[in-house]
Amino acid sequence: MKQHTLPDERRPANDGPKAAARNRAALVSAAREIYATDGLDAPLSAIARRAGVGQGVLYRHFPDRVAVATAVLEENVRQVEQAAAAGDATFAGVLGVMTWHLTESAAFIGLLHADRTGGRSDIGAYALALSGRVERGLRGRLPDGHRLAAADDLMLAVAMVSGAVTGPTRDERERRALAAWRLLGVEVGPVRPFDG
């Protein structure tokens, strides 16, 4: 059998590792969008389609549903940490970033609960580690004497707000999150992702 080759100008570019990183980022972004509207039980094929890649590419990066969800959680936490580390960051601004992620990720907050992890204690430990990273980021920008400065108050408030983040649309989830912060007497900056 004879192989036919295309002239150089018609060959698709082989981006190698760049394509892998781009595909992974596209999958995480697509998963966030799909989970926000359809929940954790959304078909993985829908995530691959939204990302513009085949299911084989999805499974090359993420062996199962839990791996996809934890990758999205990891990205959420990383952005909160980056927002907190920015030189001009304020507590209200970091809360705005965290609140954006809560409203985008509300459909899979259940992953943090042991009954949703299929008995996998490694997921529970991982969720605790992520929570600790969020708390360190927020505490690093918490002004002295703030109403949430007491030992457990900050993360209790975060848990209370995350429990209020419900609704069929992103706008409704954001409205409820901001109402919860307001009822707690906490100022929140613009609700948006961290754009570095």
Rank of each mutant, 00 (worst) to 15 (best):
P12R: 00
G16Q: 03
R10C: 00
K2S: 05
L27F: 11
V68N: 10
A13V: 04
V68C: 11
D38E: 15
K18F: 02
T37I: 13
V68R: 10
R65D: 08
A19T: 03
R10K: 01
G52K: 01
A46Y: 02
P63S: 10
P63V: 10
V68S: 10
E9G: 01
A26Y: 05
Q3H: 06
H61S: 15
Q3S: 04
R49E: 04
L40G: 05
E9F: 04
R50H: 12
Q3M: 05
V66L: 15
T70H: 11
A71L: 14
G56H: 03
A25S: 14
A46H: 07
R24Q: 06
L58D: 08
A19K: 06
I47N: 09
A21I: 09
E33Q: 15
R60D: 14
I34V: 15
D15P: 03
K18I: 03
V28R: 08
G52D: 01
K18E: 05
V57M: 14
V66R: 15
E33I: 15
D64Y: 09
K18G: 00
F62Y: 15
R49Q: 03
T37H: 14
N23H: 13
R50I: 08
E33V: 13
A46I: 01
G52Y: 00
P17E: 00
K2D: 06
A48L: 07
V57S: 13
I47T: 09
P17R: 03
A69C: 07
R11G: 01
E74S: 11
R32I: 13
A71D: 14
L40V: 06
I47L: 09
R24P: 04
D41Y: 14
A69I: 14
P17Y: 04
L73K: 09
D8T: 03
S29E: 14
A20F: 00
A69V: 14
Y59R: 10
V28Y: 06
P63T: 08
A67M: 12
Q55E: 13
G39A: 13
T70A: 12
R22I: 04
T5H: 06
R22C: 06
V66Y: 13
R10M: 02
G39P: 05
H4V: 07
L73F: 12
A13Y: 03
A19S: 04
E74Q: 12
E9H: 00
D64G: 07
P63K: 14
T37Y: 13
N23G: 09
S45F: 02
A71N: 12
R50E: 15
A67P: 07
A25G: 09
S29M: 10
R60S: 09
A31H: 10
E9W: 01
A26D: 13
L44K: 01
R60A: 11
R22D: 12
G54C: 01
A71T: 13
A42R: 10
P43N: 08
L73Q: 14
